[in-house]
Nucleic acid binder design. Structure first.
Lengths: 349, 349
DNA sequence: GCAGAGCATGGAATCGATTACATGGATGTC
DNA sequence: GACATCCATGTAATCGATTCCATGCTCTGC
């Protein structure tokens, strides 16, 4: 592969001049410029990004460590992150942690070794020493979706409290009183927050959330299945299961179906995170939708602000309830996106 | 960030010795080794992968350019690719082409500039000059899922011919005679092949495939919706719609639902590419399942063989039909994975 | 006509690693 | 005891870019 030396030789100039042409430095004669450009063209020369990065100490690359690529929520997030980054002149390297702290560390280390300019993380756990050190050492970093409390890093996330309250109101209105939740890992903020919000909203309606009705999941489908089976085995099973993410909802659906039961007649179901497929499941699933694309874009903007010396800002956007049929409401006929407005409209910071 | 010089200074040795310790070179005294290791630990030193790559001309990185991250088929592929690569000591950088040739070129160029060791591509089109040049120039490369005819690059893919034949037999057996297909872009091999296989299988049963029943899609949901609407507007709409990928099937489902029609009573639906959600759609969707994980792993093995000087082999694995209820077969009660065996069992090369 | 400014250019240092080669000391062989 | 081997180590070249600095030339202004 041709290097800058080959171009210089072919154009009859020094490597310095070639570099100047390539970097749009003003002090280059028109003649030299055309000769260099011709040589570049003739040789099919492309600058070696590795060498350039070594010299300039910038890679123009962002690292994105997400918890699970198979989760449609995260793939949508990844897509919007890449899009915005590209628009700002950065590339993105994605690391999939698969909800495993060891894998998360593997990817963080790998990205750090590659000297990425900044790191976008949706942490799988409370923060390994590696990640905490990186944050302390001043690696430009932004948390997205989930975050680690006590670490001084901007956070871009959705606030689901209001939407969860809307959901509980919706369920209460339909006559449901025994609500259960499949929680995410307590070590993640989204894991604990969603349970908290659910519990508080239930309290407002005078409904307790017994331990037997809070199952521990890990954001993966299999755990949703397992926890739901536990609920169904209870002497007095819940009337509603609220899954803290879409994959656990899929698992719950599997479990209900395996017993030959029907949603919502035998048991109602709701989920955090809305995805296109929820419109077409049997029945369509009531879910809390996050502004995923906006989240990804805002996170990139915050990170790039930090990298380029501006002051990054944390961002919190509201999530909203999308009512469908899985909790028992009569079907709103067959209109496609089937999003009835939230029962109560609240705004969030 | 500490460099190898800092470590050398701290350990009281030369950088060469540090490098030797780090690369497990045999000629290092036990004493020097422990001092270096201690210095590494104390400084939290991590080798700079950029510098290392520049010197060794290897990045231990594979590029993966896929057609669409939002397609669950490709995210599963990406996941298995990353897994196998990691097991073999490589990282993966993913580029999402979004079915756009210009974006595909952008990513290929970016990956080439980064001097990745090899490229895994699922081409969105017939091959840009850039990609053809890269292949000719000897960049280690493997095509996965889709490929470009006439280019001397190993291909790892699934053969769906037998499964498509099984599908047509299944449809015929259910009494369907007017079958339509939503094809993928003709520029992609999977786009044209699936139509070919469908047409041939239909011919075996004496059924023609009129032009009005072959809609042109682009593997994205929106095109599935549009084409399906066209089918439904026909004076004599088809009895079955076969979508050449899962996203177009989702779009088709949207279109059918928007008209207040029901699957399979009003129109039957089948799809290429099986995904977990198809079990829970209304109704569960009959689909052709590819051995996605195996495909990804085989592709990585082939590419790494090529990179490390061994001879890479093309691999073709059979796809198989998974019958569910969307084409009208009576429901096989409520057993979860609901996979009845293929009507006819054939093996493929 | 000359000083000073400004421009185009090249030489060489530099980034952080790896590695060929040189060196000096210890060990082994006959 | 002399010489060859081998081992541990250091010096310096190298990968492909960017960029500081020096140089020589052309203008401009007085």
């Amino acid at each position: 592969m041709a290097s800058i030396k080959d171009v210089a030789a072919a154009a009859g100039v020094s490597v310095a001049t070639v570099s100047r042409v390539l970097n749009a430095h003003p002090s280059v004669s028109a003649d030299a410029r055309t000769r260099v450009l011709a040589a570049v063209e003739a040789l099919g020369y492309r600058p070696n990004a590795v060498a350039r990065s070594l010299r300039t100490d910038q890679t123009h690359t962002l690292g994105l460590v997400i918890s699970d690529v198979l989760n449609p929520y995260f793939t949508e997030l990844a897509r919007s992150v890449e899009e915005e980054a590209r628009a700002l002149g950065y590339s993105v390297i994605i690391g999939n942690a698969d909800e495993r702290p060891d894998l998360q560390d593997h990817h963080v280390r790998n990205l750090l070794d590659r000297r990425i300019d900044g790191l976008l993380v949706s942490p799988t756990d409370g923060g390994s020493p590696l990640m905490l050190d990186a944050a302390r050492a001043g690696t430009p970093m932004v948390f997205v979706d989930r975050w680690i409390p006590g670490v001084d890093v901007p956070v871009v996330r959705a606030d689901g409290r209001a939407a969860v309250r809307d959901l509980v109101a919706h369920l209460y209105g339909l006559g449901h009183r025994r609500l259960a939740i499949i929680a995410g890992p307590a070590a993640t903020t989204t894991g604990s927050e969603r349970v908290e919000a659910f519990r508080e909203a239930m309290a407002e309606y005078g409904m307790p959330l017994p331990d037997a009705y809070t199952g521990q999941g890990d954001f993966q489908a299999e755990s949703g299945r397992r926890v739901t089976e536990g609920f169904l085995d209870l002497p007095r099973p819940p009337e509603v299961v609220f899954a803290a993410d879409n994959l656990m909802a899929l698992g719950a659906l599997d479990a209900v179906r395996a017993r030959g039961l029907r949603v919502p007649d035998d048991i109602a179901l709701a989920a955090f995170d809305d995805i296109p497929w929820f419109v077409h499941t049997d029945p369509p699933v009531t879910a809390i939708a996050q502004p995923t694309g906006e989240l990804g874009r805002a996170a990139v903007r915050a990170l790039v602000d930090r990298i380029e010396g501006r002051v990054p800002r944390s961002v919190t956007l509201p999530a909203r309830l999308v009512v469908r049929r899985s909790c028992g409401e009569p079907a709103p006929a067959a209109a496609p996106p089937a999003q009835s407005p939230s029962p109560v409209q609240r705004s969030t910071s």
